[in-house]
Write a protein that binds this DNA or RNA. Sequence first.
DNA 1: GCTATTTGACCTGT
DNA 2: ACAGGTCAAATAGC
Length: 342
Amino acid sequence: MDTGLKWQQKTLVNELTQGMELAKQLKIHLSPSSMSQTQEFLVHKIVASFEKALLIVKWSGPVENPQPVAPSSAPQSPLSVNGSPRTVSEDFDKGCKDHHQEHKDFSKKRKTLPTWTDQVRVCSETGLEGPHDDGYNWRKYGQKDILGAKYPRSYYRCTYRNLHDCWATKQVQRSDEDPSMFEITYRGKHTCTQGSHSVPAPASPEKQEIKQNHHNDNNHQQQHYIENPLNYSSMASTSYGCMKSETSLFPQPSAFNKDNYDNLLGCYSPTFISPATSDSNCFSLSPCQMSNFGGPPNLQHSESELTEIISAANSPILNLEFPLDQVDFDPSFPFNTPGFFS
DNA sequence: GCTATTTGACCTGT
DNA sequence: ACAGGTCAAATAGC
């Protein structure tokens, strides 16, 4: 791509980021107690606008913006995902390792699996705990040092792979430049529904994070996830702020706590817990809510490859970026309604 | 004892 | 040949 354009884009991103940061600082400096809800909301909206702009820039940015993987890697559309071939082959493979043909077939499918990849860049603030869960239960099955990457990549698969023939997997890669950021690549869509419902289950692979973060309020969110399984990619590509971070960053949670957000935005519950790698314990990932933002699933799906940068740490309201865009606040929304911000 | 994680080995694609 | 992805035995935690 044109380096000049790249540079411009970078500059623009920098400027936007700076503006966003300044807005955040302003918010911080404004005494939360003295800030009216309206004022606070406005500040949030300013930040959200910056973040949206950032996203737009990045989206439009041709920079390694990957071609829709869905089409490329899965010509038959991601929606046609079916883990069955692999299920069969893998099980078979387990039992008959010497069946090279079968194994080969299976392996081929690893690459050509009708799956699609979503890359979500999430961020966790070093000090903050990521209370987030993408709504599914993941089980780590591998870790690998990646060439050129400072941090190893962790591989997760759906806990219910065998139980429910769910072949969704995800990879978690810590960012080299910003160790507080994680890039999560989703592969395949969940065919299980239990996963989300069972999040509270003690056996959840995220339990560690849950324990650490003492957060597990993402149940309803998970439901959205489930309700829109086909939008998994879009969900995965959705960026959210860490709700935990948000709430913890908000000095006045009473005014803008998670519930309020949920109410405000309809139904987003952006919290996510991503199974962390051994060295990455918390990051927020909020891949799921996108489908709830009102955008056509397919449209979002096509965007599934977009990599989004989420500065959860710095963007307490990141979850608004899309909501704002697609849902947007109703100007007439009674924010001042007593009790709304309880 | 069960389940999840770790980690070295193995397999596949490039 | 190399790098990435997955498997599976060993290990750890509950």
